[in-house]
């Protein structure tokens, strides 16, 4: 017997914190961490909702795939970030402004 309410609050707060990190932090790697938090918030949701609809395994399965996708995203993302470091010697997105309108 578990209560759903605190878990819902947890996922909402995790998502909001992740969003705040994405908006506030000026470092691509930390932004990546924020994105991971947002993905994990969805995972909490998926697992909790799976408990509410126990007839199938959909939620848990989805959560598994989200983890796989997160891995891929991180790998590619870090590779991209590293290359930008090489070119710009900085990881602050604001400093990277070769492209302008």
């Amino acid at each position: 017997m578990i209560e759903a309410l605190p878990l819902h609050i947890l996922s909402a707060f995790l998502f909001a914190t992740g969003l705040a990190i994405v908006i506030i932090k000026r470092n691509a790697i930390v932004v990546l961490m924020g994105i991971e938090l947002m993905l994990n918030a969805s995972n909490v949701n998926l697992i909790v909702f799976n408990r509410m609809h126990p007839s199938t395994f959909d939620g848990q399965m989805f959560a598994l795939f989200v983890i796989i996708v997160a891995v891929c995203e991180t790998a590619v993302g870090l590779a991209i970030i590293l290359r930008v470091y090489r070119f710009y010697k900085t990881s602050v997105p604001d400093h990277i402004q070769e492209l302008k309108g």
């Binding site: 609050i9 996922s11 707060f13 909001a16």
Partner: peptide, 26 residues
């Protein structure tokens, strides 16, 4: 950033917790 996060958090908490109470316990 904080404003957006707070707005999101309060909105989600408000409506998502309604989902928790409206469905049966786990």
């Amino acid at each position: 950033g904080l404003l957006a996060a707070l707005a999101f958090a309060s909105m989600l908490v408000k409506y998502q917790s309604m989902m928790a109470t409206s469905t049966a316990e786990l």
